[in-house]
Design a protein around this nucleic acid. Structure first.
Lengths: 260, 260
DNA sequence: TCTCCTTATCGTCCGCTCGACGCTAACAGG
DNA sequence: CCTGTTAGCGTCGAGCGGACGATAAGGAGA
């Protein structure tokens, strides 16, 4: 297709600062964990304009010469103290509504992080407080920018990921029991699972769990001591572990822009 | 976590152009179709610096005040003439390696498009040629920027999407036969499928296909005429249609940044 | 010690899905 | 009529998962 009015500025041969508008680029983190059997997200309360007093996802500008993934990992380590090898990090997507930030044109690259239970970190600059909030308790209307959409995308992606990957273990400590892993699934999906079928599934899937020599820890509310496991080498669950609720034939589709 | 040297510039209260580096933001399109039973991608040959003579994905800068999705759809319509409701579009992810474009700092937001078979469009500005290339014939070392990575991500995402969504129909015309739909799966996955089991699966999944009144078209190489269908309202396949190859326990993970 | 409660782990039954594959239906061409 | 092709239906058996019984192994309290 030739020559719509703006086509000349595509793929300019040489850098011409007048040919493209400058954007700010930020990373925002959807940092998820399971705390006290509740699926929770790390939220900050903003102390600066805009959206002062609103909840927000932690994040910040990408620096010059800094890779997007590196910026996300840097933020993760700075704001939570989580080492990058103690959590699972993947990109969630880019959010670039022209009016998502009233100050200027900003594209946010959101990252999804699965972390084991950790104490809430200290507030960073520009934030009044930092805390873990159960995702069901978050009021989307009280979030800054488009963070309600970002959070919703992250939560849905996390729920889907548990179905076909062994990433639930990223919410657990290094060694964990089958029961602890089941509580992760129950918290994230919000449904009870049959302990016996769950046990059969996860222990019967090759590469999901590797038994750790230690025979038995203690139980907080009694019961027979459970065996300890670590994450196995598998990166996919095959076949998947499906959420027990019968989904209707039609459901929201992740990030589809146009007709499905 | 308090006070690393750069923390002060996070979430500035007011616009301060010195506080963040300016980025160019582009959209790149991984435009996929099935042509002559081959899974193909729309590639342009660059005619301008940098990467003159290299293959590239179609794309261009996002304009001021333009939403990312809107920029992608605009590119789609401009470069291919595809109307947005004739194809499936979803965001693939952001690619922001600091050196991906030698001219300047650019973050590319990649989009994945499933389109029915169409004639190759005319070259746009800055491109020497535009053509559909079977994805297996693309030489990743001859692609501009990081488009080899972008393309690989798009292809893998497309293959996975066919497993758990009915999006294969987005590669077909408005009305199509079960055999045509099967050829889409076979081309995308690169494996033959049993026609009888495939027929049972797709016709037995509620909401996948809706029969169209017209009783029968003609067959190009003979055979019994097939019934025509359109896309149904389903957006998920449940249970999924799994690729017949036995995947090994460990496989590449989409966009994971760190340990799982 | 015995009872009861809790959780862990193993086993059984049954329905559903899928892969493999046989069979018939409905066209075209010679 | 015969053959070749694709479409569509049926059958069988293995495997997986949901429902759920049974046993194991701990702690708390009578």
């Amino acid at each position: 297709m030739t020559g719509p009015p703006d086509a000349e500025q595509d793929w300019l041969g040489d850098y011409d600062p007048r040919a493209f508008p400058p954007f700010g680029v930020t990373v925002d983190m959807v940092l998820l964990t399971v705390r006290e059997d509740r699926f929770s997200v790390l939220m900050v309360e903003r102390d600066t304009h805009p959206f002062r007093g609103f909840g927000a996802l932690p994040g910040g500008f990408v620096q010059e010469g800094e890779d997007l993934d590196a910026a996300a990992v840097r933020r993760l380590e700075q704001e939570t103290g989580i080492r990058r090898d103690a959590a699972y990090v993947e990109q969630l997507g880019a959010f670039g509504d022209p009016h998502r930030d009233p100050r200027m044109r900003v594209v946010s690259v959101a990252y999804l992080v699965f972390a084991p239970d950790l104490p809430a970190p200290l507030p960073a600059a520009g934030a009044r407080s930092v805390s873990w909030v159960p995702v069901d308790d978050v009021d989307g209307d009280r979030l800054a920018f488009d963070h309600a959409r970002v959070l919703a995308a992250g939560v849905e992606r996390a729920r889907a990921k548990l179905e076909y990957t062994p990433l639930a273990a990223a919410f657990c400590d290094d060694a964990f029991t089958v029961g602890e892993l089941r509580k992760v699934y129950e918290a994230v999906w919000g449904v009870p699972l049959d302990p016996r079928n769950f046990h059969r599934k996860v222990t019967g899937t090759p590469g999901f769990l590797v038994p750790v020599g230690k025979p038995a820890p203690v139980g907080p509310e009694g019961g027979r001591p459970a065996a300890l496991y670590r994450r196995g080498p598998a990166t996919l669950l095959h076949p998947a572990m499906l959420r027990p609720v019968t989904r209707p034939v039609t459901r929201e589709q992740s990030q589809g822009v146009s007709r499905g």
